[in-house]
């Protein structure tokens, strides 16, 4: 049975904007993106919203719903109390283009800075081989759908606006996937420490909390990278070992 639900949606562009109120007839099973589409179809034809798959796999419909960064296609209406007004905003960390659509191109610029996968020599038969145990760990990072919710919620980028000093959680896990890859031979640790700014992350785990793919961004990605930096630059026993043996 359809019920009337109240929405507050931010409307505007990069110069200015305001919240607009809408009442929507919501059916059982609808998600927030469905309601936004209804508003777009019936009340605000010029409402801008980016979306694609409606299945939580394309990462397009990222926005902030009642203050939390979420995929609108995976946010069910029955998560909210019947009388609760649902507030919808664009992501905060990125420049607003129009209404709920942000310019996320900064992320692609960060991606270009990362040295790509550099495998060692092939096996004698001309193939590369990896065992499943090695695949399992890096596979987790490949689940990323690039919704950039982790980038949005990261306070280093969101509140402190340190985009020049930190590439953000999404690219930390890309780096983790490359660094932990058993066939990769590139050394990215110096750049992870300096240019990519792993030290800017203070482990408050919001990236992990908002990840719709439930990737252990902090525990399995960022902290292991921090530990690899510690190995190289701060571990007293390893420093002593290097001094004594000359080995890295």
């Amino acid at each position: 049975m359809a019920k009337t639900r109240k929405f507050r949606i931010w409307r505007g562009d990069e110069q200015a904007g305001d919240f607009q109120d809408y009442d929507v007839e919501v059916e059982t099973g609808m998600v927030v993106l469905d309601a936004i589409h209804l508003i777009q179809a019936e009340q605000a034809h010029d409402l801008a919203v980016r979306w694609n798959c409606k299945a939580g796999k394309c990462g397009s419909c990222s926005m902030e719903i009642n203050g939390k960064p979420r995929l609108s296609c995976m946010t069910r209406m029955n998560e909210y109390a019947p009388d609760e007004t649902i507030t919808v905003q664009p992501m905060r960390t990125f420049r607003v283009i129009k209404d709920l659509v942000c310019d996320v191109s900064w992320n692609y610029e960060q991606n270009k800075k990362i040295a790509p996968f550099k495998p060692g020599p092939r096996d004698a038969d001309g193939n590369y081989r990896m065992k499943q145990d090695d695949v399992d760990r890096v596979q987790e990072f490949r689940k990323c759908i690039e919704c950039f919710l982790c980038q949005d919620v990261c306070h280093v980028l969101r509140d402190h606006e340190q985009k020049e000093k930190f590439v953000g959680p999404r690219f930390m896990i890309r780096l983790a996937g490359l660094e932990m890859h058993p066939l990769d031979t590139a050394d990215r640790i110096p750049k992870i420490k300096e240019e990519f700014g792993v030290g800017m992350c203070n482990i408050t785990r919001c990236c992990t909390e908002v990840c719709p793919e439930h990737i252990g961004i902090t525990d399995n990605g960022i902290i292991p990278l921090k530990e690899r930096v510690v190995d190289r630059y701060y571990d007293p026993l390893r420093i002593l070992w290097r001094k004594l043996t000359g080995k890295t």
Binding site: W10, Q15, A16, G17, D18, F19, D21, P90, R92
Partner: peptide, 11 residues
């Protein structure tokens, strides 16, 4: 329109 003023994006 909402009476309160917000930054761009409503944050």
């Amino acid at each position: 329109s909402d009476a309160t003023t917000y930054a761009v994006g409503g944050h």
